[in-house]
């Protein structure tokens, strides 16, 4: 009786193994599509979703102008203290003092890509970029200045 059950068990196990192996064999011979991404070999053709949150950048137009007024809303919205806004005071032609952004400091190493700063910005000055290859040899390289040198506020943005 025991022997009979034992043989039955072994037979059942081998049978279900073969059922599984049949599918493995099927995929082995019918590899129509290759799902694995060959990163980093496919870097040139790598397609990332347009909303993918890789890092925060500030958009500049062709005249090197941006839309950041230095209002600090993003700094307040950020949960990790990733953003530091340093303001300066420009003297307008009429001789008045006007607040403007001096340095937009962005600590990439602290950022969690939560998108809250982008949501908070009233003038859509910052956005998320798709770059995700952030490794560097020196930690200080991760602290970035987002407004470009010599850039200024676009006309008509308050």
């Amino acid at each position: 009786m025991f022997i009979k059950d034992y043989i039955k068990d072994v037979y059942g196990a081998v049978k279900s193994l073969l059922t599984g192996m049949r599918m493995t064999g099927y995929y082995f011979t019918h590899h129509k599509e290759i799902i694995t991404e060959q990163y980093p070999d496919n870097r040139a053709t790598l397609h990332l979703a347009e909303r993918f949150r890789g890092e925060v950048v500030m958009s500049h137009d062709e005249n090197n102008e941006h839309a950041c007024t230095g209002c600090s809303a993003c700094e307040i919205a950020c949960p990790n203290g990733t953003i530091k806004i340093i303001n300066k005071f420009d003297i307008t032609p009429e001789g008045k003092k006007k607040k403007a952004i001096d340095t937009f400091v962005y600590h990439l190493e602290l950022c969690t890509m939560c998108n809250l700063c982008v949501q908070a910005c009233p003038t859509d000055a910052i956005k998320m970029a798709q770059n995700f290859e952030h490794s560097v040899y020196d930690r200080s390289k991760l602290t970035k200045k987002l407004n470009k040198d010599g850039s200024k506020l676009r006309e008509g943005i308050e």
Binding site: L48, A49, R51, F52, R53, T112, M113, C114, N115, M128
Partner: peptide, 12 residues
């Protein structure tokens, strides 16, 4: 998820 939310794991 990535297309709509912008993230794959930690969505927010």
């Amino acid at each position: 998820m990535e297309k709509t939310c912008g993230a794959r794991l930690t969505m927010n």
